[in-house]
């Protein structure tokens, strides 16, 4: 059985997207840098992953032209590209301020659950009601 040594992969306002790179490059660079994945393959993987969460159309856009949801999705996929990723989502309602509950984020996480080992969400205690039964 393979032993996992999870690598922390944050999704946070403090870890922004690289604004002078296309969305797909923000995602693909993790695999390209750490696993030396060829550019075309990494690009395909990034675009396919964006498609899984319904954001394929933003692959060649840049950070400033994204909505809050799209930006969150890209940050999440970037984190998921880390090998044996332990995704750490820090204050998700700061990333998507108008979000009423955690539903959208959990469904995104479920859609890409094969890409990461574990996911932890950190937020203030007083935000608890937004998380419902989670």
């Amino acid at each position: 059985m393979r032993e996992f040594s999870p690598q922390a992969a944050p999704v946070s306002v403090d870890v922004p997207l690289i604004s002078n790179q296309d969305v797909y490059m923000n995602i693909a660079m993790i695999k390209e840098y750490h696993e030396n994945m060829p550019r075309q393959e990494a690009e395909r993987l990034a675009v396919h992953s964006l498609g899984r969460i319904g954001f394929e159309h933003i692959a060649y856009k840049r950070n400033p032209s994204l909505t809050f949801e799209e930006r969150f999705g890209v940050m999440l996929l970037r984190a998921a590209m880390v090998k044996d990723a332990m995704i750490l989502i820090h204050k998700p309602f700061e990333l998507i301020p108008h979000l009423q509950d955690i539903q959208m984020i959990t469904s995104m996480l479920e859609t890409i659950d094969d890409l990461y080992v574990s996911c932890h969400i950190y937020d203030y205690k007083w935000m608890q009601e937004k998380y419902g039964e989670l």
Binding site: A9, D14, P16, L17, I18, S19, N20, I30, R78, V82
Partner: peptide, 25 residues
């Protein structure tokens, strides 16, 4: 300008967080 903007926007911190060496990348 690009480097200064990346520093101000904390994008260099992003690279460090994802263990991407800024000299290499």
């Amino acid at each position: 300008t690009e480097m200064a903007v990346m520093k101000v926007n904390r994008e260099l911190k992003t690279l460090e967080t994802f263990r991407i060496d800024i000299v290499d990348y």
